[in-house]
Simulated scan of single mutants.
Amino acid sequence: MRDPTRRENRLLAAPAVIFLLAMLGFPALLDLLYSVSTVSFENLRAPELSGFGNYRAVLQDPYFWNAVSFSTHFGLLTAALETGLGLFLAVFLSPLIQKRFWLMAVLMMPMVIAPSMMGLMYRLVLHEFVGPLPYYLYEFFGQSPAFLSPKRAFATLVVIETLQWTPFTLLLFYTAYSAIPADIREAARVDGTRGLRLFTHIELPALLPTLLIAFAIRFIDGFRVFDNIYVLIGSGAGGSSTSLSIYIYTAFFKSADIGKALAASVLLFAVAFALLWLLGRLLRRRVRA
């Protein structure tokens, strides 16, 4: 006998699925078509199929692999920092936020700012000649590091990204931490489990699915980062700060190599899809266990 609830869920989800197919399906198919075609702005309406030459050109391009390396390191480091800091702040500030929930709105403010505006703001603040931070460092200490130089640009970008998006993980972890049933904590305390042992043996396992989700979301977002880096420093000296998204943008708009750019974008989409699929499998295994 068929489950009526399952049929009802499908009917309720149908409008959203149809909307997503209409809005995202056609552009995705068009990207796939262009990625295996010789295409430019002159023949956008009549691309010439050329096989997988664009993918071969992308995979043989050293600048592509430099961009992949930059995006991977940037995504992993920022995701780890944001996840760790968000978890620490959620646990540490939980009693204070429960009493004064308006503090959460204050903590969320960096996340509300558009990344491009954040990049522009820090570009003005950290500018070597007109920035207030280098000026005051030089006034008080007699010297100031060049925050946007090739040697320090990566660390500066990581710090800026972490400061902006740690509130996102804080919100996720605070919600999950607050949802842990109080009777579980009380039972653990009755058995003598307190402090760090309570956190590592009771609370942290309950937060593990949220940890995985937060890390995956922040890694994907860091891996495809574009706007704040492009506004702050661009592709950097010798392409030192070229993320995969900046590589695609440069190939598309500056080099007019549309097929190559879309081939790289398909590879980026494949990586993001594979990570989300792997995360889904891990979560399903945990639910079954």
Rank of each mutant, 00 (worst) to 15 (best):
M1R: 14
P4F: 08
R6P: 00
A13R: 10
P15S: 08
A16I: 05
F19A: 15
L20N: 06
L21E: 08
P27D: 03
L30A: 12
L30E: 14
L33A: 13
S35R: 03
F41H: 09
E42V: 13
L44P: 01
P47R: 06
G51D: 05
Q60M: 14
P62Q: 09
V68E: 02
F70M: 07
H73C: 12
G75M: 03
G75C: 04
L76F: 11
L76P: 00
E82Q: 15
F88A: 15
P95F: 05
Q98V: 09
L103F: 08
M109R: 08
M109N: 10
V112M: 13
I113T: 10
A114D: 09
S116Y: 12
L120S: 11
Y122Q: 04
L124T: 12
E128L: 13
V130S: 14
V130W: 12
Y135R: 15
Y136P: 04
L137F: 02
Y138D: 14
F140G: 02
S144F: 02
L148N: 00
L148M: 07
I160M: 05
Q164I: 03
W165Q: 05
W165C: 04
T169P: 00
T169G: 01
S178V: 13
I184S: 09
A188E: 01
R189T: 10
V190C: 04
T193E: 14
T193V: 15
T193I: 15
R194F: 10
T200W: 15
H201N: 14
L204N: 04
L204R: 10
L204D: 02
P205C: 09
L208G: 11
T210K: 02
I213M: 09
A216K: 08
A216W: 04
D221V: 04
G236L: 06
G238P: 01
T242Y: 01
S243Y: 02
S243E: 02
S243W: 02
L244T: 04
I248N: 01
F252L: 12
K254D: 12
K254N: 14
A256V: 11
A256G: 08
D257S: 13
I258F: 00
I258L: 11
K260G: 04
L262R: 03
L267T: 01
L267V: 06
L268A: 09
A270R: 06
F273P: 03
A274R: 07
L276D: 05
R281T: 08
V287Y: 13
V287C: 10
